[in-house]
Design a protein around this nucleic acid. Structure first.
Lengths: 223, 223
DNA sequence: CGTCACATTGAACCTCTTCAAGCGCCGTGG
DNA sequence: CCACGGCGCTTGAAGAGGTTCAATGTGACG
């Protein structure tokens, strides 16, 4: 069988905090998406929004890392995306969220009411921006699709390259998520992720100074 | 290795016809997406649009079946979606297509210039419609992601259920695509698809009267 | 300093792939 | 009208890659 991440009720590790709502400091009308209220802090494993909730807010991550997940009937968890500082998220659907989002590490997130964006008498630029963002998400999802068809090694390498691309520093990556998160993102088991990383290290492609750091020795030869 | 569908130069079976452009009968201004020019006919394996081309048109399939594909560097082909009569497609990106589309069977497609939609002085309803469509595509893609994480049997069953849901007739499905198309859509080999279908038949879940027909005996117990 | 969650490592198993052969349908040409 | 040939599909047996189960290792935090 292929059941991996059954959410065995480890009620301690998975903080099941109820979704908080930011204090709506609706004052100055936002003309672009950049204008957002003060950042809200989220603890590790705290939920930003949950599946089935209405799509009322748009989020911009300031610091930390957010994971977007879908949980299947069987309890199987699939990780749809990681969001890093600067990324916008919360646009997975038009009416109701199809995904949940949680912080993988203490994070700060700016929030804006979506209505405030849409209701501004048809701000064409803004809604086009939303369309662009959704299209970008779509492209990301399709790239992720491609990744899931490859072998374990290529998936891990692809993940590292994706993270490296989004990092500021060159050749050095920070992984602000657990092995389980990575595994669920890549459709592998934590054991395979661990083994594959180790293999890449013994091959000389990378170094693993700590659990959260990866150094890419030859970014080009990573294929 | 995981290389499956390497496009071995079977230049005969894959009609590499150049993308045709419909005769632009731009006359009556379109106020909704429903207003489209007369349908264009496409032959089997004929390309509607290709990867890298600008996103200038929106398409609505009238009859037949369209497959959306991405081809990887290795020659590996991934099938992103099937479009059936009534479906709209061509919104995989905002600027340049990231996918190619071909007819899996003789098909008729209605076409509309995208500019004609966007340039109408900011038709808010239309652009919101586009946003909805893109969001729906995103959801489809994420569902497809989920499917790719399951075992072979669950993938095939999921595919059958998806097709059944889109069919008018109840309990009977037409598959207007080859086994290779199905395999590339599910991330499996044609052998596994064939075997799995046969297995489902011997289990009594389905019947396979012909290559293109599937009868679902107990749609509920298909799990 | 002990505990707990997370990560690593090892060995047996299982599913899907791979390679290879045979089948059946359909169009073409004799 | 039937034989031939091609293509897509089926079926079989061997192999690889990832999962599973189980045990051990390691770092953070009280």
């Amino acid at each position: 069988m292929l059941l991996r991440t059954v959410s065995e009720g480890n009620s301690k590790s998975r903080t099941r905090a109820r979704t908080r709502r930011p204090a709506a400091s609706s004052s100055s009308p936002a003309s672009t998406i950049d204008l957002m209220v003060v950042p809200t802090a989220y603890a590790r494993n705290e939920e930003i929004f949950g599946e089935g909730e209405p799509v009322d807010y748009l989020y911009k991550i300031e610091s930390g890392c957010i994971r977007a997940t879908r949980t299947h009937d069987n309890g199987h968890r699939q990780l749809v995306a990681f969001y890093l500082p600067g990324n916008l998220f919360g646009l997975d659907a038009h009416d109701l969220h199809t995904i949940s989002t949680e912080a993988t590490t203490p994070s700060k997130v700016r929030v804006i009411k979506r209505k405030a964006l849409m209701a501004r008498g048809g701000d064409m630029a803004t809604i086009k921006h939303l369309l662009d963002l959704t299209a970008a998400e779509l492209r990301r999802s399709q790239n992720h699709n491609l990744l899931l068809l490859k072998g374990a090694q290529e998936r891990v390498v692809g993940f590292l390259q994706e993270m490296a691309q989004r990092e500021h520093r060159q050749g050095e990556i920070e992984l602000p998520m657990t092995r389980r998160d990575i595994a669920d993102y890549l459709g592998l088991t934590i054991e395979t992720v661990s083994r594959t990383l180790k293999l890449l290290e013994t091959e000389g492609a990378i170094s693993l100074p700590s659990r959260w750091r990866v150094v890419l020795h030859d970014p080009a030869a990573l294929n």
